[in-house]
Every structure is written in structure tokens, then in C-alpha cells.
């Protein structure tokens, strides 16, 4: 994958050399051209095409953004209620991610989505301990978010 990105950068450089114009626009055009060239030659690379990973990353950002919005509104709604009506608590959930990088990404993203802070991780058992602001109402949505993010993270990292 790194090989393909380097090759793409090289193609962009060569494009700039051929035009003898050294600005960002020419570089971008060269990079897009290189992207399509590598796409059409993807059969001959030993590793899968890197555009697929790029797509997975975009999907992760998109999913995460939507979750962030939705749950932010929920949390702000809980905060501005005249009487606090929350039942905080700690619950545990399982994860199928194993390596450190994947776990770190999942925990960071989960901590950023409102309504849940990851408190403790047991990597060997694959268990996350999550503090939720309102256990009963938030638990299903947190688990749903986790499942969604897990699938996309696997797509990105493997």
C-alpha cells in the first residue's frame, strides 16, 4: 500500500516535470491522473488497491460525524433539562478487535461520541468498561455505534 502511494506521488512529480509548471494545481492534476493509472494497473500489484482503504477512511469519518451530531443533541438535551434526570453508571461490553492500534482507534472514537467514556480496557478478554451518562437510555445506542465503528475499523486496518 505504501508502495502505491509513493508511486502515485512519483507520477505527480513526473507530471510536474513534464509540464515544467511547479504549483499545487499541476501537482493535484498529476496526482489524480496517477490515481487512475494505478487503479487501472491494480491487478499487477501484490497488495489490494489503496483507494479502497481511502474509501473506508472516508466512510469512517462520515459515520462518526453523524454519530457525533446525534448524540451531542441528546446529551445537550439532558443537560439543559430543568431537573437533571439521569442515571449514570458503568457497564461493560465486548469487542472483537485485537491489535493495539485498532483498540486505540475504537476507544478514541467511542470516547468522542457523547454519552460514553471508556474507563478501562481488558485487552486479553476484549472487554471495554464504559461510563454512560444514562445507562438505560444510552446503552443500546452505544452498543450500536460500537458495532458500526468496529466493522469500518476492521475495513480500514486490515
Amino acid at each position: 500500500m505504501t508502495m502505491q502511494i509513493l508511486l502515485n506521488l512519483l507520477i505527480a512529480m513526473v507530471w510536474m516535470l513534464l509540464h515544467d509548471v511547479w504549483n499545487t494545481l499541476t501537482f493535484t492534476i498529476g496526482f489524480i491522473l496517477g490515481f487512475f493509472i494505478i487503479y487501472s494497473f491494480r491487478r499487477f500489484f501484490p497488495t489490494p488497491f489503496y483507494g479502497r482503504k481511502l474509501w473506508a477512511i472516508l466512510k469512517l469519518i462520515y459515520l462518526f460525524g453523524i454519530d457525533l451530531m446525534m448524540s451531542s443533541i441528546v446529551v445537550i438535551g439532558q443537560v439543559i433539562r430543568p431537573r437533571l434526570n439521569i442515571q449514570p453508571g458503568i457497564f461493560k461490553m465486548e469487542t472483537k478487535l485485537k491489535t493495539e492500534w485498532e483498540l486505540a482507534m475504537l476507544v478514541n472514537l467511542l470516547t468522542l461520541t457523547p454519552g460514553s467514556v471508556v474507563m478501562e480496557i481488558a485487552p486479553e478478554e476484549g472487554i471495554l468498561y464504559v461510563h454512560a451518562m444514562d445507562v438505560k437510555r444510552n446503552k443500546p445506542s452505544v452498543i450500536k455505534t460500537k458495532n458500526k465503528l468496529e466493522d469500518v475499523i476492521i475495513e480500514v486496518m486490515r
Binding site: M69, S72, V75, I76, V79, P88, L112, P114, V117, M119
Partner: peptide
């Protein structure tokens, strides 16, 4: 608005754990 509301949450919520919710999320958004 989001930042001021989460500061409000920072004052109103009961303990450290709940306050960290207000401090890390809505403020980042």
C-alpha cells in the same frame, strides 16, 4: 452555544465521571 451549554453541564452534573462527558464531547463539537 454548544460550548456554553456544555460549560453549563460542567457545573450541573453530579460527579467527575459525568463532568468528563461534558468536558470531552460537546466542547470538541
Amino acid at each position: 452555544l454548544m460550548n456554553s451549554l456544555s460549560s453549563l453541564g460542567f457545573i450541573r452534573l453530579p460527579d467527575v465521571y459525568n463532568r468528563s462527558h461534558a468536558a470531552t464531547k460537546s466542547i470538541t463539537l
